[in-house]
């Protein structure tokens, strides 16, 4: 529920005995487990109550009955600061920026990820040749390769494992160049690099 609520905030909540549960309320959910969950009510219908954390991409898997809701969060205390946690319409407005940011990030991520993967696979940017070099280090479990770019480590490869390259460096490296490094290392397993 960040940024409205964070870990270790002290929460004041009251039971729903007198009021009704509305979309937008921040509620304390009794999951039956040791840990209670604090999420926002998304909707209330005849089947039950649907909740979701403000930063989550999906509704919670459960549909709750009202007796599973221990109470509604009214106030929060962080350090010496105390503030009202809005419910109902107020809560929906209070959480709107967080939910908007989450949706935007999800969209951007959804668009960029396939583009990144596509660029990696197609090697379209491979023409930008980076002056990378690799250093082979002797380790007890085999040879480890460090991929270096102007003194910085941009990737690693352990024996029997795939390359782990920091994004976005992978965009500028050709698969053939990477396998060539491995081939060179294998062919140069001279007595000193066994």
């Amino acid at each position: 529920m960040n940024p409205i609520l964070r870990d270790l905030d002290k929460l004041y909540f009251c039971s729903f005995e007198k009021g009704e549960i509305r979309a937008g309320d921040v509620v304390v959910i009794d999951t039956g487990l040791e840990k209670k969950v604090i999420h926002r009510v998304v909707s209330v219908n005849e089947r039950g109550i649907i909740t979701r954390g403000d930063n989550n991409y999906a509704d919670d898997s459960w549909t709750l009955r009202s007796e599973q809701i221990a109470g509604k969060v009214m106030y929060a205390l962080r350090g010496k600061r105390k503030w009202i946690v809005r419910g109902g319409w107020g809560g929906q407005i209070q959480s709107a920026p967080t939910i908007f940011k989450r949706k935007l990030l999800w969209r951007v991520h959804g668009i960029l990820r396939p583009i990144y993967q596509g660029l990696v696979t197609s090697e379209k940017l491979g023409f930008i040749s980076l002056p990378v070099k690799a250093i082979a280090l002797q380790r007890p479990e085999g040879v480890e390769l460090l991929l270096m770019l102007s003194g910085h480590i941009v990737g690693k490869k352990k024996t029997g494992e795939p390359w782990r390259i920091k994004p976005p460096m992978r965009l500028f490296l050709k698969e053939s160049d990477l396998s060539e490094i491995v081939d060179r290392m294998n062919s140069l397993q001279s007595p000193r690099m066994k």
Binding site: K133, A134, I135, A136, L137, Q138, R139, E144, L145, L146, I181, R184, M185, L188, R192, M193
Partner: peptide, 14 residues
């Protein structure tokens, strides 16, 4: 230098 390589403190460029 051999000791460094054997310990993984130095390595050869490939």
């Amino acid at each position: 230098v051999r000791d460094l390589v054997e310990k993984g403190f130095a390595g050869y460029e490939v």
